[in-house]
Design a protein around this nucleic acid. Structure first.
Length: 789
DNA sequence: AAGGAGAAGATTTTT
DNA sequence: TCTTCTCCTT
């Protein structure tokens, strides 16, 4: 590690004038760029003014950004604290920080690097009093937020069946992301749903404030308001951060865009890095226009294109290119690579999701024994978290170690959320969502009725729920209920009074001990409960570790721990030193790379999702998602789909994804046996035996149950009868018809369900999913299947 | 108020 | 299929 002579950073006098680099400084910094290609190096040394780096997957954009920051420091153009770098995940921030430190030494630790949310949470902590919050504000995730909205809905008499807390939350969140305030939102309201949501917008904002809490969107919205109301504070931050970097710029939303604009308004030293083809977060407000119109927003911006891919084989790059060609709207760029041609990309067809998982498992094992790669070189990607189950089962059966990203991540688990809710209360007892969460967890005799009474009291006296808890007698509770509530209130306030002073780890340990959470789990004495107990202990260890100090050794408080923990995504917990196969959604795979990648579930209705298939814009986003997925692969890529899949506990037949059939022409895909891939050129066989194209297809076809209505089981959808009527009956055994969906009996395999029928007459064959042996393909003429029921 | 049984409902993706 | 909600009994 090379150490540069960076003098102590005047963090407290951020207005320190920019340093004037000498020739010697420049040439010393120049040496750092040795490993970059000419285009990357140019991007790294263009430090003044607005710069947009359009970087294809695997083109070394992180590397370039890292070197740019190192260059700024080494050439003495900036103090570390004058550099702000905004990344998409905390993991990316961590990695970038340590790489910069490797390049220029420990002083670089003082730079500001993190996600938008974590950086601005820190800003808000500093400036909390300017916006009327306490610095110990609680950060609400969507769970907490929904709890609060549900609460408001009962108060405002909105039926939670027709308008769900979840949909209200996402409506308000979108509004906040687009910087639409309550008044404007109410004006826009036209339909009953928007009207209901707009009725809750203002009370929701008020409730958050009362609870001294912020949701994710507030962490970006409040800084904007702060800067607008206090130009002097804005000025201070403009002076502090002289060089701004934003990674994954294509996934920034309106508020992030505005923040960047405010901060860079003075010096324009803004460097954004992104790839419009990898924009996959429109659903949460990301606006692709931010990157598309960068030139317009920052006239004179320098545009640099990184088009050489260093990650993947020629074949993978060509496939990625073929995938993205399906999209009309995109900045043109040509991705190319000097890498080897590589192995053909394999398309695997499976009978069922179970079969798909088994094939994945076998293939992983096979590659490993053939090439000696590590488990951690392999990733299995899927569109929805629900798909992980079958993969997990197969890997577990096969004894392949794996780790899963997302799903119910550590901090989402119930026991963890309960424990965190207690800790949040100690720091901020007005936090209503947390109060409601644990007031009766573990059960202590505070039921729904008691909570109603407390709520009424709080509403009537216009005080926080916490105030009501402290005066149960005043709320008119019965003696028994009063005593229970009092006990809870006493417990919380005892630790709340210590929260400011006691060391975080001790406080947390004692408090959680006394809540009875641990005892409750111990008493259950089931393997699951004991695993949960372990998790809570792990949380307490995390508190202790955190309290021990930040990278520079400063001890930290419980309040800081809680704020940081709210912003930890599951990918952030992913460490590289575990030798396991990685399972995750395509979204979570962004920014990562693996030697071997499986993209699974390439089926209509799943990938692309049914809803997205109906809308051209959303369909393009799905295609970009596939682009992101395939470009994670360095050496080997497998695409899989299953001909049938469990949905809502019912086996449904499926049609392979249109994305596959777009990959015609070039010789890109091979089947498992090495045969050539035959594109159906956008056409497929429909259930009525005809042909249609994807555009005409019912996007919800997969919702139709294959199970005929036998009068005993409730029909899952209205279309069952209709679907059955249209279906060609292939084989008729007396009055019992063997059609997809019916239960049949086989004399050696037992009972099973018909998934599909192929051929007709003598050659008709059925694919049957047997309870005992799984999928089998049987000739009807020999199998003598009996229809059951 | 608590706990159990049975029924209804759910699957995009997430900082 | 799995989870959450609702109603019912204790």
């Amino acid at each position: 590690m090379k150490t540069f002579a960076l003098r102590p950073d005047p963090d407290r006098t951020p207005s320190a004038s920019p340093r004037q680099p000498t020739e010697a400084d420049r040439s010393e910094a120049e040496a750092l760029l040795g490993g970059l290609n000419p285009v990357q190096a140019e991007a790294a040394r263009t430090t003044e003014g607005p710069v947009m780096i359009i970087a294809g997957p695997g083109s070394g954009k992180t590397r370039t950004l890292t070197h740019r920051i190192a260059y700024l420091l080494a050439s003495k153009q900036a103090w570390p604290s004058q550099i702000l770098a905004l990344t998409f995940t905390n993991k990316a921030a961590r990695e970038m920080r340590s790489r910069v430190v490797d390049l220029v030494g420990d002083e670089a630790k003082g730079m500001w690097i993190g996600t938008f949310h974590s950086i601005f949470a820190r800003v808000l902590r500093r400036e909390a009093d300017h916006i009327g919050f306490s610095r110990d504000f609680t950060i609400y995730d969507s769970d907490d937020t929904e709890r609060l909205i549900k609460e408001l809905m009962t108060r405002y008499g909105i039926d939670p069946k027709r308008v769900t807390p979840r949909s209200v939350r996402s409506a308000i969140s979108s509004a906040k992301n687009a910087m639409v305030g309550p008044d404007e939102y109410a004006r826009l309201a036209g339909d009953p749903f928007t009207e209901a949501a707009s009725k809750l917008y203002t009370p929701y904002a008020a409730a958050l404030r009362k609870a001294n809490a912020m949701d994710f969107d507030d962490l970006l919205g409040w800084p904007i308001r702060l800067f607008e109301q206090h130009p002097d504070i804005l000025k201070e931050y403009q002076r502090r951060w002289r060089f701004l970097h934003i990674d994954e710029y294509q996934d920034t939303n309106r508020t992030q865009y505005v923040l960047a604009k405010l901060l860079a308004a003075d010096h324009h030293n803004l460097c954004v890095v992104g790839d419009d083809a990898q924009s996959i977060y429109a659903f949460r407000g990301a606006d692709i226009q931010n990157i598309l119109s960068f030139q317009k927003d920052y006239p004179g911006a320098k545009e640099i294109r990184l088009e050489q891919n260093y990650r993947s084989t020629q074949r993978i790059v060509r496939l990625a290119d073929a995938v993205i060609k399906g999209n009309a709207k995109q900045l043109d760029k040509t991705l190319w690579t000097d890498n080897d041609e590589g192995d053909p990309i394999v398309l695997m067809e499976a009978l069922s999701e179970r079969d798909e998982a088994q094939k994945v498992e076998r293939t992983i094992r096979d590659i490993r024994s053939r090439t000696g790669i590590s488990w951690s070189d392999v990733a299995v990607l899927y569109r929805t978290n629900a798909q992980s189950r079958s993969i997990e089962e197969a890997l577990r059966r096969g004894g392949i170690p794996y780790r899963m990203v997302g799903g119910t991540s550590f901090y989402q688990r119930k026991e963890i959320k309960d424990a965190l809710a207690y800790l949040r209360l100690a720091v901020n007892p007005t936090d209503e969502a947390s109060l409601l969460r644990v007031i009766n967890t573990p059960t202590r005799g505070v039921g729904a009725k008691t909570i109603d009474q407390l709520r009424d009291y709080a509403t009537e006296h216009r005080v926080a729920l916490w105030q009501a808890v402290q005066d149960p007698g005043g709320a008119g509770l019965s003696a028994r209920a009063s005593k229970a509530v009092e006990g809870f209130g006493f417990l919380v306030s005892r630790f709340a009074s210590k929260a400011g002073t006691a060391p975080a780890d001790e406080l947390a340990r004692e408090f959680i001990q006394e809540t009875g959470l641990l005892q409750d789990l111990r008493d259950q004495n089931t393997p699951e409960a004991l695993a949960r107990l372990e998790n809570v202990h792990e949380l307490l260890n995390a508190v202790a570790e955190f309290a021990g100090g930040d990278p520079t050794g400063e001890p930290r408080t419980l309040s800081e721990f809680l704020q940081e923990v709210s912003l930890v995504a599951d990918v952030d917990r992913l460490s590289d030193d575990e030798n396991r196969v990685t399972l995750m959604t395509l979204h979570a795979s962004k920014g990562l790379e693996f030697k071997v990648v499986f993209v699974t579930g390439l089926e209509e209705g799943l990938f692309p999702l049914a809803k997205a298939a109906q809308d051209a814009t959303e369909l393009e986003e799905e295609r970009r998602l596939l682009y992101v997925g395939v470009t994670r692969a360095e050496e080997a890529l497998f695409l899989t789909y299953a001909r049938s899949r469990y949905r809502y506990g019912d086996q449904q037949s499926s049609v392979r994804s249109r994305f596959l059939d777009e990959l015609d022409g070039e010789d890109l895909l091979r089947t498992e046996s090495g045969g050539k891939f035959e594109s159906r050129r956008g056409r497929f066989q429909t259930s009525d035996g005809g042909f249609g194209d994807y555009g005409k297809m019912d996007p919800n076809y997969w919702k139709q149950s294959l199970r005929p209505d036998d009068g005993k089981t409730r029909p899952r959808t209205k279309t069952v009868e209709a679907a059955r009527g249209e279906r060609t009956i292939v084989y008729d055994e007396g009055e019992a018809q063997i059609v997809p969906g019916v239960q049949v009996h086989h004399k050696s395999f037992g009972n099973g369900k018909v998934i599909s029928i192929e051929g007709a007459g003598e050659r008709a064959a059925a694919t049957v999913n047997f309870k005992s042996v799984g999928m089998k393909k049987l000739k009807l003429a020999f199998a003598r299947l009996q229809v059951v029921g």
